[in-house]
């Protein structure tokens, strides 16, 4: 099992790494790059808490090999805010009380950010479709959906 040289562009920064083939992207982000905002709730693609954006699209990083992610642009939750300036989705999540235990939150934020990048003015149905791979046990999702709607309208206005 030879390690392989990979290049991950994470939150705009290139990382050259030696990765064992059986390392997942989630493990690499969390353990090698210490980006622990990416959570692992099931490790088999059922819960969405490890969601990151790969070339802009949400994927479960527990089911992507690090070697498969080589050469791709990865956005993790750490790359969403600008310094201490929250992204409108993040700010709306706090404002609407859409965060409880917070374990699903990073993945939820990334799914929402990816949606708003493509669809600036989504309807309720589109938001729910976009978040349907992110399980949350605390909120019943309502405040999350409201937060994404609110973020969308604020981003539209700005």
């Amino acid at each position: 099992m030879d390690k392989m040289r990979i290049v991950l562009t994470v939150n705009g920064q290139d990382h050259e790494l030696l990765a064992a083939p059986n390392r997942t992207l989630a493990q690499t982000l969390r353990e090698d790059l210490e980006l622990t905002g990416t959570k692992q709730g099931c490790e088999v693609g059922d819960c969405g808490s490890c969601t990151v954006l790969m070339d802009g699209e949400p994927v479960n990083s527990c089911l992507v090999l690090a070697v498969q992610a080589s050469g791709k642009a990865i956005t993790t939750i750490e790359g969403v805010a600008e310094g201490n300036q929250l992204h409108p989705v993040q700010d709306a999540m706090v404002e609407h009380g859409a965060v409880q235990c917070g374990f699903c939150t990073p993945g939820m934020v990334l799914s929402a950010v990816s949606l708003l990048d493509k669809v600036p003015d989504p309807g309720d149905g589109e938001i729910r479709q976009a978040l349907s791979g992110n399980l949350c046990r605390c909120t019943g999702y309502q405040k999350i959906v409201e937060a994404v709607q609110d973020a969308a309208s604020k981003m539209e206005r700005s």
Binding site: G48, M54, P58, N60, L63, S111, G133
Partner: peptide
Amino acid sequence: LGSPQVRNR
């Protein structure tokens, strides 16, 4: 199929 994350892979 599955979820958006799964469909993307």
